[in-house]
Amino acid sequence: MENGNGSAVVVAQDVTRQYGEGDTRVDALRGVSVDVPSGKLTAVMGPSGSGKSTLMHILAGLDKPTAGSVVVAGKEITTLGDSELTKLRREHIGFVFQFFNLLPMLNAEENILLPLTIAGVKPDRARFDELIRSVGLGDRLRHRPSELSGGQQQRVAIARALVSEPDVVFADEPTGNLDSKTGGEILELLRHAVRDLGQTVVMVTHEARAAAIADRVLFLADGNIVRELSGASAHEIAATVEEISAQ
């Protein structure tokens, strides 16, 4: 698998996405080309409605582009059928959601193991324990989501996204529903996943502080990538956001 540092796990070329027809037509993406390098944390920023979520859904195979190509783990996914996409999600992709999306009737451990259960894979106990330790959920495994705080729920969700060691994890505003302190802890966790576990993460965020932990920040505006920063500080990022929204 081309999981080596530096090579791209996701390659999108000239991706456009239109919603609706005629008068109500919306061009959410107007020809976006982007590489997601392996083992890096990529942040996506931009004003509301600029197409961040749309881009992410297309890169993850949840949505189909109107035109253009998307290659994930060496495979063109825009032409895949449902069962192949299912296989792709199982083997190569993890998700972290803004609203956690945990299953209420399962406890934390069951939620975390769900991707493996679905794939019919036996969990590796040692790795699982390691994962639990790293997300800091040791004593909460038997709790239901309703008995966990938002931050704890998102930790469960991150553990769930990491449990199957996907090639890339997509996170759409993972801190959008949390206070800033808890949000900071979650960001730290994602950073840790990239740095120490060698994961690849693509994260949409509105916060400069969050984007600052990224190796690379992409700026979207009106369906186009308009800027790209690497290893920028929160201050630089905030300035860029200002600049873009002013245009």
């Binding site: 449902d82 069962s83 299912t86 959601f97 299953l103 679905i118 794939a119 769930r160």
Partner: peptide, 13 residues
């Protein structure tokens, strides 16, 4: 939403 989440986690139809 629950069923869709399952699908994103790799559940087949």
């Amino acid at each position: 939403r629950e069923l869709a989440t399952l699908r994103t986690l790799g559940a087949s139809r």
